[in-house]
Amino acid sequence: MSKISKTFRVYHRYLGFFLAGIMTIYALSGTIMIFRTTDFLKQDKVTEREIGANVPAEELGGKLFIRNLEVLEEDANTITFQQGSYDKTSGVATYTVKELPFVFKKLESLHKATTNSPLYFLNIFFGISLLFFSVSAFFMYTKTNKVLRKGVYVAIAGLVFAAIIVFI
């Protein structure tokens, strides 16, 4: 085995052990993210928010960050919608939102990290590490090894499969 193969094996092995926990967290949070448009694992939370007096019904959804807010009833002092109500005179809206429990909400934030969040450094590190994993796997075997040849075919199949799923 060449020196470069041994070196890649060592880095691959220890980086793999280090990333095992991170990959577990990303796997769990990614699975939870699949269900983000459903109420799976979500709990009701009553929220009271002051948004100012006399906000028109058309602007209420934007002020409360509720998509597709549908007004059910409106009178001189109150606007009632599916999630709650808004008092026009006091400017206070009381409504129910569905939220993930604290731990799952934090896990979900991994996937939503932007450059404004310190978590994006973890995302960059994780992405570069996964890229190293995928490349270093090909340096762990000699060029004449049958495992490497079969591995290249399996990698090409995975690449084609992912491309088909993404573009369909």
Rank of each mutant, 00 (worst) to 15 (best):
R149T: 14
K146W: 11
I66S: 11
I124Q: 07
V160D: 11
F139T: 00
R36A: 14
T142I: 05
V71K: 13
Y86H: 04
V154S: 03
T31Q: 12
F81R: 02
K88W: 04
E58T: 12
T78D: 15
P118D: 02
K112N: 08
A93H: 03
T78E: 15
K146I: 12
L131K: 05
T115H: 08
Y120P: 07
F40H: 09
L72T: 08
I168T: 13
S90R: 04
V97D: 08
K106C: 08
L69N: 07
F139W: 01
K150E: 07
E108P: 00
K112A: 06
V152F: 08
T114N: 01
F35D: 02
F104I: 06
K98M: 11
A137D: 04
L41T: 15
I34L: 09
F18A: 11
V103I: 11
K63E: 01
E59D: 14
V154A: 07
R49N: 13
T96S: 11
F161W: 15
K88R: 11
F132G: 03
N123C: 12
L15V: 06
T94S: 06
I25G: 03
I156N: 06
T24G: 10
S5E: 00
V135P: 02
I168E: 08
M23G: 07
N54R: 05
L72D: 13
S136D: 04
F18T: 06
L28W: 04
V166S: 08
L119D: 02
Y14L: 04
G52W: 01
D44P: 15
V92M: 00
K146A: 14
Y120E: 13
Q82P: 10
F102R: 10
V55K: 01
I66H: 03
I165C: 01
D39G: 14
F121C: 10
P56E: 10
E73Y: 14
F102A: 07
I79Q: 02
N68S: 09
F65S: 14
L148E: 00
F18N: 04
L41I: 12
I156T: 09
L19K: 01
S134A: 07
L148Y: 02
S5D: 03
Q43Y: 15
F17E: 10
L159Y: 11
P56K: 07
L100F: 07
A76R: 15
F125T: 13
E48V: 14
F40S: 03
V166R: 08
S129V: 01
F167S: 12
E50I: 06
T78N: 15
F81S: 06
E99D: 12
